[in-house]
Write a protein that binds this DNA or RNA. Sequence first.
DNA 1: ATTATCTATAGATCTATAGATAATGC
DNA 2: ATTATCTATAGATCTATAGATAATGC
Lengths: 182, 182
Amino acid sequence: MSGTTTRDAVIEAARELFARRGYTATTIKDVAVRAGCSPAMVMKLMGSKAGLLAAADPSEQTLDEAAGSREPLGYGLVRRLVERRDNDAPEPFATALMLIHESADREAARADYERRYVAAIAERIGDTSADKLKSHLVLAALLGLAGGTRTMGLLRSDLMDSEELIERYGALVQAIVDGPDG
Amino acid sequence: MSGTTTRDAVIEAARELFARRGYTATTIKDVAVRAGCSPAMVMKLMGSKAGLLAAADPSEQTLDEAAGSREPLGYGLVRRLVERRDNDAPEPFATALMLIHESADREAARADYERRYVAAIAERIGDTSADKLKSHLVLAALLGLAGGTRTMGLLRSDLMDSEELIERYGALVQAIVDGPDG
DNA sequence: ATTATCTATAGATCTATAGATAATGC
DNA sequence: ATTATCTATAGATCTATAGATAATGC
């Protein structure tokens, strides 16, 4: 059915626009224009703007990427983030910060993202401690690389080669992973 | 004159609301209510919503804080950030990311924040290199700590003592500062 | 017949301005 | 007289819905 195609186009358009401009600043009409349909169509398909956000939230998508690699875990996490940048793929770490900020129920959104992201990192780095402290530290470092490169445009490839960036920022993240637990 | 007082209240209210909810999601009326005046008064004082943002942008405020301390520079930068959190003071590193996202002219805002923040960090850590690579890396790490603690609520003081956080995240930032230049 | 999609519009904002009133300085 | 501040409102959105039309499956 062609409904699936339109629905996919709408979700893809929303993903890009929410990531680029944020939730409030993105209108249903913006999404419709980019998806090539009418605003009413967007509403019919997604029910509400909040429903559209739920469908377009990029976190699920990327958070469970293939983790397999011979590289130490800290480097691997940084590598995948840098690769997303080089491929112009959505960056969930950067988007999450903004979506929390703009959420209607900010505390609920914050708690939800915190739980999911901390759990995802803990699983990746094998953090089985109760407090998940290392995961918090790793997550903070990754959020910074995401916000720095994607939102503020730091460390662009003409300034620093992607491999060198992975090497240097990866070393920082790896130092947390290799560090003490509590 | 009492005009100064109202103006200050408006700017203070805007600073808090922009930092909390973002630019688009904050309305002139929200600011007026919090400042205890009418929306028309806010407009008369600031001219436009963009003018209000310009006046309420927290970056200038905090970026040129007293840098004097015996502590190594990386630790000092982290300490000031953590202290702002513990004092519930506005966090320019966290706010900057969101304001770039929501800016009408995103690329211009991005370039402006990048220039100012990189320069501020370069001055602090004595980075005189042409590419300011270390400053970019330090800035990324600090943006992550800011976004992580303030927006996502990571590493709260019940989970990790502020001094220990400064010790551990400070070590990462200090490692960048002490690292090679290019 | 059913599904996909559109046009038209209601109802609720939001920013910004115009013009009135209250407070202050001379 | 001038400055501070308010009420009222214009004009431009925005989300969401109602109802019409076009496309598709049986």
